[in-house]
Design a protein around this nucleic acid. Sequence first.
DNA 1: TTAATAGTGTCTCTTAGACATTATGTG
DNA 2: CACATAATGTCTAAGAGACACTATTAA
Lengths: 255, 255
Amino acid sequence: MSPYDPSAHPPFAVTVDLVVLTVRRHALCALAVRRGESPYQGQWALPGGFVRTDENLAEAAARELAEETGLRAQQSAGTSPAGTPGPYGGSNGAHLEQLATYGDPDRDPRMRVVSVAHLVLAPDLPAPRAGGDASGARWAPIDDLLQPEQSAPLAFDHARILADGVERARSKIEYSSLATAFCPAEFTVGELRRVYEAVWGVALDPRNFHRKVTGTPGFLVPTGGTTTRQGGRPAQLFRAGGATLLNPPMLRPEV
Amino acid sequence: MSPYDPSAHPPFAVTVDLVVLTVRRHALCALAVRRGESPYQGQWALPGGFVRTDENLAEAAARELAEETGLRAQQSAGTSPAGTPGPYGGSNGAHLEQLATYGDPDRDPRMRVVSVAHLVLAPDLPAPRAGGDASGARWAPIDDLLQPEQSAPLAFDHARILADGVERARSKIEYSSLATAFCPAEFTVGELRRVYEAVWGVALDPRNFHRKVTGTPGFLVPTGGTTTRQGGRPAQLFRAGGATLLNPPMLRPEV
DNA sequence: TTAATAGTGTCTCTTAGACATTATGTG
DNA sequence: CACATAATGTCTAAGAGACACTATTAA
């Protein structure tokens, strides 16, 4: 480092942006807010906001999440990739983890902004509430946001951020029990399988999937209850177990 | 976001910190620099420095890396986790990727500093050259840095950052060909195996390892040459192939 | 020669993947 | 009844792990 001289390094604004993912009607969806002001006025963007002086990055992300959706965040052992998170699902809070940081000099035309993106995985939620200066908010299938044909593309570099978040979710459910973060506190094996199918965009064999997840120690904990909310024969209800590492990983079919 | 008002959000300093890893004498080592000034004067720290106005985060990390080690960086498709990197090893540049961002309000007593940590994997290098304001630099086994018995712990939150970087490297070599980034441009199967053994701290069966890496299409490309630099029977030399995803992953023994 | 590492072969056991069958609810 | 989904079972091919053996150099 160069000798400490505050005037020697320029001021940055630091924001958090949120990639909030959920599974709705068999499709992976992300939360988008409509920008009420310039630049990119009227276009869709990821929710986010400035980090305050007295809060750390994860707190800022959790605060923005609460402001936009009312969701409580369940932080994954700080923002660190090496943390030892508790069980992903089974609680009322959404899973939150740091994703990546974006700091190209011209990513915001107003000033130099470094954005620390966070990834949130949540069960299917009621319609989002518009918060702050956003004149609207919606859940949109990620394909609609990444390859928009009707509307304008996402503001700033948010398409890139969203793509990175989706890729993180897709790869991480392969070797962790993170997929349970998309499920409510109690869920069936079939519901969990539909999460994998929606996130990966593939069809999985229900019989092999059932054998796999119920045979992995610590992955699922039966609650004793059953449900018929999916129709057909009553299915056992499970909570997410403590195991967060799937060994061997859940294998994604090759196309 | 709240309406744009530069006075409404506080100024931050943004730095990059580097976790530079290499394998020396069968041990995973990290680059540490001695701080020449307060705070933490005289203690060891990770190399790093302030991000300049005209550069993005990866450029800042590559510049600091060159200043501290003379290494050229081989960026992994930007800083994004979703990038499609080229072959990891086989070139002269070190592998560089964004690790995570650390922004606790009190992590630097002088001012609010948000640090975007980067991970660098490099082949065994000559002794580092001290650069900038660092009054010394060395390669140290990571255990010495993380559980120091003789000296003071790493400055700031750098122990946490280093631990996160090590964990990232340990997990990523399992399902990618990233381990070749620790090797020189041409290397033998035995040399690659010693990388895995040093990073994971385990012993691997040389015969099964050989079958695994040579049997994975696109992982290794024979150069035609041989070497006896490890002693014993001459070994074939390989370059890193283009395949970056190991399917199935390289399995780490359970201790 | 010994000592070192490189490289190939063989066996077993686990498991992913494909697919059949039975179980238990609702309309 | 038909029809949905849940849950368990069977078979096969592939691969991980354990381990024996041969090959080729240097000292």
